[in-house]
């Protein structure tokens, strides 16, 4: 589509397209920093309790299926690759390839959520629930629920981010489909891409902490 070459009009308070792009990108980075600090609170809590009750966290992790976790890790890593391609093709103004790459990314997110659904329903079925709701095996430990409090809080908050990320990718996919992006303007894809990479990165930390400590 040749209409792609039309210039995006940057907002009145910027000097140029690059100026707007660099500023927006900085805004996204700052937002990601705040996300990291929010998850950071949970990670710190996890480390403290894991230190206090190593037995509970060991037994808890035994209840998780590391193969499903590993599968999800691979799915998310692959989706990061397709996200990068989505940004790349948006920048080139290659509408078709960009849309395909972004669609695959969303699909990966959906697979991730399906696997999570299977894991969650399995846990709920076995009574492996947070805090007071825990009715599974206790192994003689009185607070086995604590591990699952962290499991559900961390994966739940992360899952919410995956869902949010999928919605954002759908938004840029629709815009890419209209041919809105080209080498002059692809800021939204770039920003959403950064967010998606962070969501992946958090999972990269969650996977060993939750699945592999046992």
């Amino acid at each position: 589509m040749s209409s792609n070459s039309q210039h995006h009009h940057f907002a009145h308070h910027f000097e140029s397209e690059e100026h707007e792009y660099a500023t927006s990108k900085e805004g996204v980075w700052l937002f990601l920093v705040s996300e990291i600090l929010m998850f950071g609170g949970l990670f710190v809590g996890y480390i403290i309790y894991q230190h206090m009750y190593p037995q509970v966290f060991h037994e808890g992790a035994m209840h998780l299926d590391w193969r499903l976790g590993a599968l999800n890790t691979i799915v998310l890593l692959f989706s990061s690759l397709t996200m990068v391609l989505g940004v790349h093709f948006s920048q080139l103004g290659d509408r078709k390839k960009a849309v395909t790459a972004l669609a695959i990314t969303i699909l990966c997110g959906a697979i991730f959520m399906c696997v999570k659904y299977i894991e969650y329903s399995h846990k709920i079925h076995e009574g492996l629930l947070p805090g007071a709701w825990y009715t599974g095996e206790t192994h003689g430990l009185s607070n086995m629920g604590l591990y699952f409090s962290f499991y559900f809080m961390m994966t739940g908050l992360h899952g919410t981010h995956v869902l949010g990320g999928m919605c954002l990718i759908l938004w840029v996919l629709l815009r890419a489909n209209k041919g809105e992006f080209n080498s002059h303007y692809y800021t939204p894809v770039e920003g959403v891409g950064l967010f998606w990479h962070l969501v992946d990165l958090i999972w990269i930390f969650l996977f060993p902490l939750l699945y592999l400590v046992g």
């Binding site: 996300e35 929010m38 950071g40 403290i48 009750y53 007071a132 709701w133 629920g145 604590l146 409090s149």
Partner: peptide, 29 residues
């Protein structure tokens, strides 16, 4: 502020789902 965010989120979850992270009765602190 994000740390306050996660703190009050945990507080809300504590109240809704009784997750016990801050509740001494469930091993929390």
């Amino acid at each position: 502020t994000p740390v306050l965010g996660i703190t009050v989120l945990l507080l809300a979850m504590e109240n809704i789902f009784n997750i016990g992270i801050f509740d001494p009765a469930l091993g929390g602190d």
